[in-house]
């Protein structure tokens, strides 16, 4: 019997020298549970959350742009991050100019951005864009030509609840024919739609955002509060009151997504069960399945043996038995002979 010593595992060889291999990789895991949760929340998901909007200024921003961005930030409510200082080196339309933007978006976990910049060449410039997998996906440059803020409409906006899903509508055939407008339609829908939901409270439909493609490069953006009035039928009568912001845009440059990235980004997960093959349901019979059987070879099929052949079989068996016995006897004789020879050989 051995008594347990006080120093646990201390007796014997003493501390071992660790073997050091500088080139070897090591596995780094999140140190805290909270850290792991954060990492998991940033990982790709099957069903994604609402894209967050990063609102920031570029090199310089005019007061108009500052107000526009402020309104945008308010509209996105909880799904928006706003930077308050100017950010140099953010030029999404120049080679290498998107790197800072990508860095900021990754830092705050945003999939969308709205950047305001003001130059002599492009005054009151608002750039809307998206990211995919931490890289710039597409961008659209809009010049603000007319603007009336939410504040200027007084308390019209009080009819709309914060965080409610808006209706988003588009007017004009150019949203299909013009590439920049097509991009604008996709972007506006992506910026304002918020979290995709499977059910919605009808009373919660309280604002509409409408975009009008008036000209080849003229885009109007309006927002109205929806008032549902009694109509005597199940469907209420809709009355709209403008709540702002009222924005008139001139479409400037645009950057469509690279085709390969677009293909990857538009891939959607297969949700729910895969459809079962060859199984249908019938009103009378219930679940009905179809099965496939390989074609039968009738010539070689194993059928029931007719009784008439029974005697023949008996006779055959007896004959075989007799033959077998005969061969066994001869074989025994031969073996005995060879044994005699074998005994004789060494002598």
């Amino acid at each position: 019997m051995v008594q347990k010593s006080d120093t646990k595992g201390g007796s014997g060889k003493g501390p071992q020298q660790p073997q050091l291999e500088p080139s070897k990789t090591k596995l780094v895991t999140a140190k805290t549970r909270k850290g792991r949760r954060i990492l998991e929340s940033r990982a790709p998901k099957l069903v994604e959350d609402a894209k967050r909007l990063l609102v920031l200024y570029g090199n310089k921003a005019s007061q108009v742009l500052k107000d526009v961005l402020c309104d945008l930030h308010k509209l996105k409510a909880m799904e928006s991050v706003k930077f308050t200082r100017r950010n140099e080196e953010c030029r999404p339309f120049e080679v290498g100019g998107e790197q800072r933007l990508e860095f900021y978006a990754n830092k705050v976990g945003c999939g969308l951005f709205a950047m305001g910049s003001h130059t002599k060449k492009r005054p009151h410039n608002l750039v809307l864009g998206r990211f995919f997998d931490g890289h710039l996906y597409d961008a659209l440059e809009l010049g603000v030509e007319g603007y009336k803020s939410i504040q200027a409409f007084g308390n019209a906006g009080t009819g709309a609840g914060l965080g409610n899903k808006p209706c988003i509508m588009f007017v004009g055939e150019r949203f299909e024919s013009s590439e920049a407008m097509r991009l604008a339609r996709s972007l506006i829908l992506d910026v304002f739609r918020g979290q995709p939901v499977s059910a919605i409270n009808q009373a919660g439909v309280d604002r509409v955002i409408v975009a009008y493609a008036v000209d080849e490069n003229k885009l109007l953006l309006r927002q109205y509060v929806v008032k549902l009035k009694k109509s005597g039928t199940r469907i209420p009568r809709v009355v709209l009151v403008e709540m702002g912001p009222r924005l008139d845009f001139a479409v400037r440059r645009h950057r469509p997504p690279p085709p390969e990235m677009e293909k990857e980004a538009l891939r959607q997960p297969q949700l729910g069960k895969k459809k079962e093959k060859n199984v249908e349901s019938d009103m009378l019979e219930g679940k009905v399945g179809r099965i496939y059987v390989p074609s039968q070879d009738v010539d070689r099929i194993a059928l029931a043996k007719p009784k008439g052949t029974k005697r023949q079989r008996h006779e055959d068996a007896a004959e075989r038995k007799a033959k077998h016995k005969k061969t066994k006897e001869t074989a025994g004789k031969e073996a005995a002979d060879s044994q005699q020879q074998g005994e004789a050989a060494p002598l």
Binding site: P44, L46, A203, G204, R267
Partner: peptide, 21 residues
């Protein structure tokens, strides 16, 4: 406070933020 309507999935293709897991 209202009626909950079942919405079908959106049909406009929009890009994902991150690739499929």
């Amino acid at each position: 406070g209202g009626r909950l309507a079942q919405l079908p999935a959106g049909k406009t293709p929009l890009p994902r933020e991150k690739p499929l897991p």
